[in-house]
């Protein structure tokens, strides 16, 4: 829908006349009248945009955008944070083990001191190869720094996208807080479980899961397995 943005020529002529005749008060009043028409047109345009946005959001199937904004985006952030912390833990465990083995090779190196020269040289050579491989293992763990930085950045971008969507939802006169829970019917839930859903890393997905191998064993034990 187009708005009339035409300026009334008579109104402008009147303004010019007022200025030429140095009637300041009249000129100001005419100018105000002209700008107020423009302002109200602008207001109508913004209000139309908002109405369109509201309609568009309403027409989306099952409010999918609203549900995505409320549930999927936080879910993605939670999953990415799981990746960040899991890779960090794994790297740190690997580093700890490698450091322990380095200490052991140091002790072994000391123990070769008492051996005859030719044997000592042979052991030294092997130990030095072990140390080289261990150093390689430790350096490889630096992947965590790189992937962690990238993932942190992705989390930031997603959070900012989330904020924009919440703002958009607000602007379209929807209440973010009253967006309902995503409901999956029993058949759909069972089908996705049979397909495999991966690690249950979000608070929501942790419900009704075995928390440890002991839990699994207890459950199977009840069935005689």
């Amino acid at each position: 829908m187009a708005f009339s943005t035409q300026i009334d020529t008579e109104a402008v002529k009147a303004l010019l006349r007022a200025l030429e005749e140095n009637e300041q008060d009249k000129a100001v009043a005419l100018l105000d009248e002209l700008t107020s028409i423009r302002e109200s047109e602008l207001y109508q345009q913004v209000s139309l945009l908002t109405q369109n946005l509201h309609k568009t959001l309403d027409q989306l199937d099952d409010n999918s955008l609203l549900l995505q904004a409320k549930h999927d985006i936080p879910d993605v952030t939670e999953r990415l944070n799981y990746v960040i912390s899991t890779t960090e833990d794994a790297s740190s465990k690997t580093l700890e083990s490698a450091e322990k083995v380095l200490n052991i090779t140091d002790s072994l190196e000391q123990m070769t001191q008492g051996l005859p020269e030719n044997e000592r040289a042979e052991y030294s050579q092997l130990l030095s190869e072990v140390n080289t491989e261990l150093t390689e293992i430790m350096l490889t763990q630096s992947f965590q720094d790189l992937t962690g930085q990238v993932l942190n950045r992705v989390v930031l971008i997603i959070s900012s996208l989330e904020q924009s969507l919440i703002h958009l939802i607000d602007q379209s006169c929807h209440d973010y807080d009253s967006i309902p829970e995503r409901v999956e019917n029993r058949d759909e839930q069972q089908a996705s479980e049979m397909k495999g859903i991966g690690p249950n890393v979000t608070q929501k997905s942790k419900s009704d899961t075995a928390q440890s191998q002991d839990d699994v064993d207890d459950l199977l034990g009840e069935l005689g397995l």
Partner: peptide, 26 residues
């Protein structure tokens, strides 16, 4: 050996005749 840890999934595997069920990480 799986990351699937829903109780319903473990029971389903037992019914299907699994001999052992290990959750990752193990």
């Amino acid at each position: 050996i799986t990351a699937e840890a829903k109780r319903s999934q473990i029971l389903e595997a037992a019914q299907a005749g699994v001999d052992g069920y290990i959750v990752k990480p193990f």
